[in-house]
Amino acid sequence: MAENRITEYNKESNTVSWFYNDHKDEKRYDVTDNAINFINHLIIHIPDYHFLTTRYY
């Protein structure tokens, strides 16, 4: 996820606002999540230790 997709971080309420573009209907969706929930969504995309990805085939 690119850093410019994060639109706001509210320290008092501990929320992160971000957006994504859905390619099915070409619309922009704005999402406001709890900071812990946001981090959980991000870390599922980090590969496991020693996991090899194929860049070119």
Rank of each mutant, 00 (worst) to 15 (best):
H41R: 11
Y29G: 00
T53L: 10
T54D: 07
F19K: 11
H45R: 02
Y49F: 13
I44K: 13
A35S: 14
T7A: 04
T53I: 03
R55E: 10
L42K: 04
N4I: 08
I46N: 01
A2D: 15
M1Q: 03
I6Q: 09
I43V: 14
A2H: 09
N34W: 08
L52R: 08
Y29S: 08
W18Y: 15
L52W: 01
T32Y: 02
T54M: 02
W18H: 10
N4P: 05
T7R: 07
D48H: 10
L52Y: 07
K11R: 09
N40H: 07
N4L: 11
D30I: 06
R28I: 14
T15K: 04
F19H: 14
N37H: 07
N37Q: 11
P47N: 01
N10A: 00
E12K: 13
D22F: 05
F38D: 01
F19N: 06
A35H: 09
H23Q: 12
T7M: 06
F38R: 02
H23M: 12
E12N: 06
I39H: 10
V31D: 03
K11T: 04
F51E: 13
D30R: 08
E8N: 15
D33G: 02
R28A: 07
F51W: 01
I36T: 15
K27I: 01
A2K: 14
R5W: 10
E26D: 15
L42R: 01
D33F: 12
N37T: 12
Y9T: 09
T7H: 00
N37G: 08
F19P: 02
E3D: 13
Y20L: 05
D30H: 15
V31M: 06
F51P: 01
A2V: 02
R55Y: 10
N14Q: 14
R28N: 10
F51G: 02
T53G: 10
I46R: 08
T7F: 00
E12P: 00
T53H: 09
T32C: 12
I36K: 09
K27L: 06
R5N: 15
N10Y: 00
D30Q: 14
T15S: 11
I43C: 06
E26W: 00
I44M: 06
N37D: 14
D33Q: 09
R28W: 00
Y20W: 10
D48N: 13
E26L: 14
P47C: 05
S17K: 15
D25N: 15
N14H: 12
Y56L: 12
E3P: 03
Y56G: 07
S13W: 01
E26K: 15
I43R: 07
P47E: 03
T15N: 05
W18A: 11
R55P: 03
H45N: 09
N10L: 05
